[in-house]
Design a protein around this nucleic acid. Sequence first.
DNA 1: TACAATTTTGAACGCAGTTCAAAATAAATA
DNA 2: TATTTATTTTGAACTGCGTTCAAAATTGTA
Lengths: 200, 200
Amino acid sequence: MRDKTSEKRHSLRQKIIDLAQVQIANFGLSSLRARDLSKEAGCALGSLYNMFEDIDALVLEVNARTLIAIDEKMDVAVANIPQASKQLKALAHAYLSFARANPLSWRALFEHHLPDEIELPEWYSESLNHLMARITQPLAVLRVDYSAEVLAKRARTLFAAVHGVVSISLDNRFVGLASEALDSELDRFVDVLLIGSQHQ
Amino acid sequence: MRDKTSEKRHSLRQKIIDLAQVQIANFGLSSLRARDLSKEAGCALGSLYNMFEDIDALVLEVNARTLIAIDEKMDVAVANIPQASKQLKALAHAYLSFARANPLSWRALFEHHLPDEIELPEWYSESLNHLMARITQPLAVLRVDYSAEVLAKRARTLFAAVHGVVSISLDNRFVGLASEALDSELDRFVDVLLIGSQHQ
DNA sequence: TACAATTTTGAACGCAGTTCAAAATAAATA
DNA sequence: TATTTATTTTGAACTGCGTTCAAAATTGTA
């Protein structure tokens, strides 16, 4: 009967992650409540803390899924594109497109901060690295002169820049670019980066 | 005696903003506590809510000061630089330098989110616009062909990109660029943007 | 000085994450 | 199968926080 028990545990755990994911997607990270989740999952409040160290740990699970979802979109985006520069553009647009389609899940990735001293779990960092590798690949083709080390730096800088543009545009703190304008602005931006990098 | 009262009110208000500013600078936005502040300020808990609508309003005051401080650093940074492209680089470095010197205050600017529906007060938006104008100015010199509208878009995109690079580098979520490497990486990055923009 | 208006106060409220002793359930043993 | 032991689940209770508001203190006025 051990299987039955641990199976139930596992399926409840998944159910809770599912529910948290939906909640974050629909109402944002700040709307997540331990009590709501346990009620929806049909378990006791304390059971949540049997499944997860704390709410942060649960959020990490949801964010990991978001990272995977972004990665999958990126995978599809570059699938039939042979040219490396076009691949990079496609990646940027896929990122924007995901952020637009899933703004609250996407924002949760960056809103969520672990308390100081606490490190990200390795499996989470690996997801991040995997995402970064998506960028490294086409960049390596464009800049065969880059060492692995430089390549890694440039890939992260490139990601950071695109992320910044998407981020500030979708946050409505700064008076916004109209949403339609954002596509062409991002397109042009990646062009500028590529051209600049080539002429450097 | 009316003057005495409103003067005291005003100085208590300033004192509370001062205290909140120090607290955020030293221990981050998430360490701010209404009870701590009132204790340190030597007033009752309720008095805080006579001075500020809520804690968000207080945070906005602190963030406004941070924006002003950034603006001042930028002002100094470009003071003796005639060349527009060098000014833009100097602005980027001033931004990085401020973020590095005041990481928690700087992070509070972006960590803090008002609840949905609630708009930023106009005086705050104006500070943001003022900061943006710092970038618009040299960019206008470099690209006299830009209309005012395009100029505004490009300035914001430029800011967003630089912010993204600084942001992701200082957040320790992504495996970090060594701090020394960041300066030269940012320098090169702005070069790429400028060169790319010129050749576009 | 007596009264009215204003300001300050801090106990109390609601809500949220987290804990943990007790209850329920499952496993092991006789 | 009946009994004991181990494991898991439970939810009331604890703590900490932002916020409120009736009462107290203070200030202004007649």
